[in-house]
Amino acid sequence: MALADVLLELAFVVAAMLVTATLVIVGPRRIVAAARGFRWRLETCLLPFAALVVVLLLRWSTQDIVRRLERRVLQNNITPQLFAFDQALFEPVTILQSFQTEALTSFFVFVYIYGYAFLLIFPFIAYFALEEMDELSTLVLAFTANYAIGLIFYTLFIAFGPRNVDPMAFEGLLYDAFPQSGALTHEVNQNTNVFPSLHTSLSMTVFFLAWVTRTKYPVWVPVSGVLAVSVALSTMYLGIHWFSDVIAGTLLAIVSVYIGVNYTVEGIVAGVREVVASRLGPPSADGE
């Protein structure tokens, strides 16, 4: 019930942002062209989308297994290390939170939830409207890499965010300002999965790809840049992530973009098939 309300509001706000951005950045001409050729466009990037769906399904279906593996078997709790790193550096979370004002909190809550959702969805529309589907395939593969690598880290490490360690030193601003959002974040993630920050990595992925495609959408580069950096800052300001999570998230974004740009799902599948065939495939009986 609370979740449904939050989702509805999220849908409305993000839809409004998407419509505005599509009109301004993509432009009516491209939209009309994309609408006409949506069939071949979809067919072209079916494979990368399938890969993304597989990874997301894997994440969703293995929740219980991953949780038991992470918490009961592997039990690598790195929270103290993340905390120590933050302290040794210059306490970025504390510094960010020291600028706390009501307006700034509202801004970061908005960015963390609505801005982030917009940032993730808009590139799909924008790249879909291009003449070639290469950019869209790159985007989808980069997202897939983000989720897949993130899942590995989340299994390997238990890490709690700042607000969970010391509520006196780090305020849990998100849930103070907007408790219902807990229903949403609870559905999507667990509080033991903060290293690396997927909020940061996905946002940065979008920004880096915006740079790669800067000739197509020059306006999108500064817009996504400001949003991506704001999302990264918001995760710390709201007491959800450590500085290390944000660094790791940015590194993950770089790796994911590298994979997205240099590889294709077809290529990866073919490569895997080749390896499997050469290892397992029966050598042809007649050598000739």
Partner: peptide
């Protein structure tokens, strides 16, 4: 973690600081 019990997390955090003041290598593991 504070999600489960804010007070326990706060006490543990204060305790860690005080142990450190006494020269103990203290870690706080939520």
């Amino acid at each position: 973690p504070a999600d489960d019990d804010e007070l326990a997390a706060t006490i543990a955090s204060q305790l860690r600081e005080n142990y450190e003041a006494a020269g103990i290598d203290a870690t706080h593991e939520p």
